Structures are given as C-alpha cells and as structure tokens.
Lab assay of single mutants.
Amino acid sequence: GMDVRRLKVNELREELQRRGLDTRGLKAELAERLQAALSGPSSG
C-alpha cells in the first residue's frame, strides 16, 4: 500500500482532494485522514 507518512503535504492534499476529502489541517492530520481512507472500506 501507500505510505502516507512519506508523502509531502501537497501530495497528501492531492490524494485527499482526489477522494473528495478535506484538505485542511496539519500534515499529521492529512496523513491520518488519508490513511483512514485507504484502509477503510472501498466503495464503488
């Protein structure tokens, strides 16, 4: 899988935006949010 901790802030935001998620917050928050999205149930 993707290691969200290795991504830069702008990369985290890009991935979040692609999934329609909130791109605001600290890098740690963005990484946590993206990780949750990646490990969560895949819809679609």
Results as ranks from 00 to 15, higher is better:
1 G>T: 11
1 G>I: 14
2 M>K: 08
2 M>Y: 09
2 M>S: 07
3 D>E: 08
3 D>G: 06
3 D>L: 08
3 D>M: 07
3 D>Y: 04
3 D>F: 03
4 V>E: 03
4 V>K: 04
5 R>K: 13
5 R>F: 06
6 R>Y: 09
6 R>N: 12
6 R>Q: 11
7 L>V: 03
7 L>A: 04
7 L>Y: 04
7 L>G: 02
8 K>Q: 10
8 K>R: 10
8 K>Y: 02
8 K>H: 10
9 V>G: 03
9 V>W: 08
9 V>F: 10
10 N>S: 15
10 N>I: 09
10 N>D: 14
10 N>Q: 14
10 N>R: 13
10 N>K: 14
11 E>L: 04
11 E>F: 04
11 E>Q: 11
12 L>D: 01
12 L>A: 01
12 L>Q: 00
12 L>W: 01
12 L>R: 00
12 L>M: 06
13 R>M: 09
13 R>D: 02
13 R>S: 03
14 E>R: 14
14 E>G: 06
15 E>S: 03
15 E>D: 02
15 E>F: 04
16 L>A: 03
16 L>V: 02
17 Q>E: 12
17 Q>W: 08
17 Q>D: 09
18 R>Y: 04
18 R>W: 03
18 R>V: 07
18 R>D: 06
18 R>T: 07
19 R>M: 13
19 R>T: 02
19 R>P: 04
19 R>E: 04
20 G>M: 02
20 G>K: 03
20 G>W: 01
20 G>F: 02
20 G>D: 06
21 L>H: 05
21 L>K: 05
21 L>N: 03
21 L>Q: 06
21 L>M: 08
22 D>G: 05
22 D>W: 00
22 D>M: 03
23 T>I: 06
24 R>H: 15
24 R>W: 04
24 R>I: 13
24 R>G: 15
25 G>Q: 01
25 G>P: 00
25 G>T: 00
25 G>Y: 00
26 L>A: 15
26 L>N: 15
26 L>R: 15
26 L>H: 15
26 L>V: 15
26 L>E: 15
26 L>P: 15
26 L>Y: 07
26 L>W: 03
26 L>I: 14
27 K>P: 14
27 K>N: 05
27 K>S: 07
27 K>G: 06
27 K>R: 11
28 A>F: 08
28 A>T: 10
28 A>L: 06
28 A>Y: 09
29 E>K: 06
29 E>G: 03
30 L>M: 06
30 L>H: 00
30 L>A: 01
31 A>C: 14
31 A>E: 14
31 A>I: 15
32 E>N: 09
32 E>M: 10
32 E>S: 10
33 R>L: 03
33 R>A: 03
33 R>M: 03
34 L>Q: 00
34 L>F: 02
35 Q>N: 09
35 Q>S: 10
36 A>Q: 12
36 A>R: 14
36 A>K: 12
37 A>M: 05
37 A>W: 09
38 L>Y: 03
38 L>W: 03
38 L>T: 06
38 L>D: 03
38 L>R: 05
39 S>T: 14
39 S>I: 11
39 S>W: 08
40 G>A: 12
40 G>M: 09
41 P>F: 11
41 P>Q: 14
41 P>T: 14
41 P>Y: 09
41 P>A: 14
42 S>N: 14
42 S>H: 11
42 S>W: 02
42 S>A: 13
43 S>Q: 12
43 S>V: 12
43 S>M: 12
43 S>N: 13
43 S>L: 13
43 S>D: 13
44 G>P: 13
44 G>M: 12
44 G>C: 14
44 G>N: 13
44 G>V: 13
